[in-house]
Simulated scan of single mutants.
Amino acid sequence: MYTSQTKLNLIQATIDLIMKHGLEKLTINKVIKKAESSKGSFYYYFSNIDDLMKEAFLYSLNHSLVEFSYCNERSFQENINLFGHHLIQTSKKKSSEHAIMFLWISKCFQDENYKKQFQAMRKQIIEENTVSKELQKIFQVDIKWLYMFDIIIIGFLVHCILHDDEDVLLSIWQQIVNIMILNKV
Rank of each mutant, 00 (worst) to 15 (best):
F42S: 08
F42P: 07
Y43M: 06
Y44N: 11
Y45H: 15
I49G: 00
D50R: 07
L52F: 00
M53E: 05
M53H: 00
E55Y: 06
E55G: 02
A56S: 07
Y59K: 04
Y59V: 01
Y59D: 02
S60Y: 01
L61V: 02
L61T: 01
L61P: 04
N62H: 05
H63R: 11
S64N: 03
V66Y: 12
E67I: 09
E67T: 13
F68D: 03
S69Q: 14
Y70F: 15
C71F: 12
C71D: 15
E73Y: 09
E73T: 14
E73N: 13
E73D: 15
R74L: 14
S75F: 04
N79E: 09
N79A: 09
I80E: 11
I80P: 06
L82W: 09
L82N: 14
L82S: 13
H85M: 09
H86F: 13
H86Q: 06
I88F: 02
Q89V: 14
T90A: 00
S91Y: 03
K92G: 03
K92V: 03
K92N: 05
K94I: 08
K94R: 12
S95K: 01
S95T: 08
S96I: 10
S96N: 07
E97F: 06
H98C: 03
I100G: 00
F102M: 05
L103W: 08
I105C: 07
S106E: 11
K107M: 08
C108N: 10
Q110E: 15
D111P: 01
N113H: 12
Y114T: 11
K115L: 14
K115C: 09
K115W: 09
M121S: 14
M121C: 13
I126S: 04
I126G: 04
I126P: 00
E128K: 08
